[in-house]
Design a protein around this nucleic acid. Sequence first.
DNA 1: GTGGTCTAGACCACA
DNA 2: GTGGTCTAGACCACG
Lengths: 130, 130, 130, 130
Amino acid sequence: MRGDFDNNQPIYQQIIDRMIAAIAKGDLAPGAKVASVRDLALQHNVNPNTMQKSLAKLEEMGYLYTERTSGRYVTQNLAVVEQLAARVPEKIIGDFVAQMIDFGMAAPDIPGRVSDYIERMDYNGKNIGN
Amino acid sequence: MRGDFDNNQPIYQQIIDRMIAAIAKGDLAPGAKVASVRDLALQHNVNPNTMQKSLAKLEEMGYLYTERTSGRYVTQNLAVVEQLAARVPEKIIGDFVAQMIDFGMAAPDIPGRVSDYIERMDYNGKNIGN
Amino acid sequence: MRGDFDNNQPIYQQIIDRMIAAIAKGDLAPGAKVASVRDLALQHNVNPNTMQKSLAKLEEMGYLYTERTSGRYVTQNLAVVEQLAARVPEKIIGDFVAQMIDFGMAAPDIPGRVSDYIERMDYNGKNIGN
Amino acid sequence: MRGDFDNNQPIYQQIIDRMIAAIAKGDLAPGAKVASVRDLALQHNVNPNTMQKSLAKLEEMGYLYTERTSGRYVTQNLAVVEQLAARVPEKIIGDFVAQMIDFGMAAPDIPGRVSDYIERMDYNGKNIGN
DNA sequence: GTGGTCTAGACCACA
DNA sequence: GTGGTCTAGACCACG
């Protein structure tokens, strides 16, 4: 039926993640108009209620704002967006490093391990690099 | 009450993760006796049934086995344990890299970002050490 | 209280067996919706948690799958179901033959014994039918 | 450690099954002396308490009897032993046929299925037949 | 004392 | 209303 969602995570959360990523990457530029709840629900193939919930949360977080009668927009607050582009990966890295250290790996060795992994990845999937 | 569990993940799963890490790190050596369900429940501050569920899953996965009426033990199967020690960090790195790329970062830039993070961490860490 | 369970086998396992038989026989068709945990618990006269455990195991085995918040369904994977319809009786026969041989019976004599039994059964059965 | 017991069945019960089979097959003849608890425990590689329990149950069932000071013997009651040789397989067959019919198989077809199974078995394991 | 099973009942997120 | 999780507490077979 709907194959592209992970059953172990609420759908609305997965949509939030997608949209935050889109904002952080600039696919959704600051000030840009966001599609209607109905359209987004269709695009993501979910129930409009679910999409509504995701958008409400994104608004709470300050990434979107609603202009009454006209629609929803990505925040104009550049600081927030830049922070996103910076802090989100920062947190991901932090969690990752913590996990590795917890696993008994010396901190200085970690980047090397990551490099190794990426090199191996390149061999298997050169096309990704092009 | 119990502050050290992540709300977005079932407790039994988080316990599984902890114990797998312990086995992979060697804190729980192959063949070692595992504490009783009741004791572990006390240690982790959860209900014995929850702990039972975690242990049953670990057993299904082949990391533990039960000697009836005598207790539970870490698998003697060294291959499994060694695989764990190798594959677990591999998976952590893989998930991390995937996340970063998903967030718009170019793969080759990732190790650099990790290095930066660790260096910054070092400055902060040293102060703590003094 | 509950007379139709065998004391030498966990209830959840007996329920699993029943449901696998139902799937193999086609009483539960592929893709069919399975009753809710609570309803099934009532039908089988057990605690919902027990039923939950049975269903979770059936899901692990690949015979059921869960559509979040909508319910549980029999797998759509026809291969799995057909295999079941073929393998289950095969296993029953295999276990039976092994038991008989273990009891000192020569393999070639077994079908004859079964025939004898069924003929005797028929005599008794006809009376019941009138 | 002790590889020849099924973890899902009490050990004492598995020993009972073995000994009943031995009596039914005549490996333990009526009136024959049974080895001491201690020796049997060694033979079967179990705790003497466990063996004791098995023997007590077998005595309850009437298959063994104790001659004070001299030891335990297989019942002299030939009826019991013959019944065993007859009724035990009878019950196995009955259970089997019931299972197959429950599975939607017509009773007259069952012996044929068994024959088929045994023939296939012969091809794979001719050595068993010699 | 050990693991295993079962019950009763509660709470929660989800759609 | 659906499945999922967790708790508290009981009982049992086992060795």
